[in-house]
């Protein structure tokens, strides 16, 4: 049955709508993989909306963009949004499905500008608890959010977006150069926290009682957990050493607290052993 030695391409001549129709019948995770079939399919998936505005518009533009996306017909509307704001800057939002979004804040044709931006230090405070439930955007029903390359310019926007996501279960923070202090205060269902390659992070304040999975890659920061977690898995990769010279082995106790009950634990380099040396 699998002879398939046909030379004519079954789908190349079909209109986008028809291809989208087939895709709409695929299960969610599987549908996205059709992007790898050929350049034509990639281009279908990578159709991008381009919008212009100011930094203040970002949240609303994103909300609108997310609302128009349809899980059951994912090729109907573009799943990528390029938003140019304040002239020189741009972010790229990519939807995986209506609950999963990637925000790359350093998407800019003018790379030089961005490199300058990443030099400045900033703090991020993600705060969402019952007393202070902002939720001005009901359509933000995201469960998984990837934040990439936030800079001091976009830290406020990022904070306000995250702080309005009361269904958030998984938060991934990647390559945020200049991020010095991160505070996460979530009383809701945040189960999974991943922080990768935020190389200047020195303070990590965790106030997240429901955390089940914690992954960190970078240099060891001061970790201040306010709860004792019962993690099901933890991956700590401190191969880059310490984030600052002042950390003593006793300061590592707090880090140990975060992982002490973890069912599965992966460690890369046990940093404080080295720190013990004078």
């Amino acid at each position: 049955m699998e002879k398939d030695n046909i030379t004519n391409d079954f789908v190349s001549n079909l209109p986008k709508e028809i291809l989208g129709h087939i895709v709409s019948f695929l299960p969610n995770e599987s549908s996205m993989e059709t992007i790898l079939i050929s350049t034509k399919w990639r281009d279908l998936w990578n159709e991008t909306i381009v919008r212009y505005g100011t930094k203040q518009d970002i949240t609303n533009v994103l909300a609108k963009f997310l609302t128009s996306f349809d899980d059951f017909d994912p090729l109907k509307h573009p799943r990528k949004l390029q938003f140019h704001y304040d002239q020189d800057y741009a972010l790229l939002a990519t939807i995986a499905n209506s609950t999963k979004l990637l925000l790359d804040f350093n998407f800019s044709p003018l790379k030089k500008e961005c490199n300058e931006n990443t030099q400045k230090h900033y703090e991020l405070q993600f705060k969402l608890n019952e007393e202070k439930k902002i939720s001005y955007n009901k359509c933000f029903s995201l469960k998984t959010l990837y934040l990439k390359s936030i800079s001091y310019l976009t830290s406020e926007v990022a904070s306000s977006i995250v702080s309005s996501l009361d269904h958030l279960e998984s938060l991934v923070i990647v390559s945020c150069n200049g991020l010095k202090s991160l505070s996460i205060d979530f009383n809701f269902e945040l189960h999974k926290l991943t922080i990768l390659d935020c190389l200047e992070l020195k303070w990590l304040h965790l106030k997240t009682s429901k955390l089940k999975s914690f992954q960190y890659r970078g240099s060891l920061p001061w970790i201040l957990p306010e709860f004792h977690f019962n993690l099901s898995d933890a991956i700590l990769d401190f191969r880059l050493g310490l984030s600052c010279g002042g950390i003593k082995s006793k300061d590592f106790d707090a880090t140990l607290l975060t992982i002490k009950n973890s069912q599965a634990l992966t460690l890369c380099r046990w940093t404080f052993e080295i720190n013990e040396m004078p």
């Binding site: 391409d9 190349s12 019948f25 059709t34 790898l36 079939i37 050929s38 034509k40 990639r42």
Partner: peptide, 26 residues
Amino acid sequence: SQVIADRIANKSVEYVRRYFGIENDF
């Protein structure tokens, strides 16, 4: 569409390419 989707769901990209008779032009 459902039948095709069922036959390519959870299959490798190589399989799907063969199924559709598409050349990998990447």
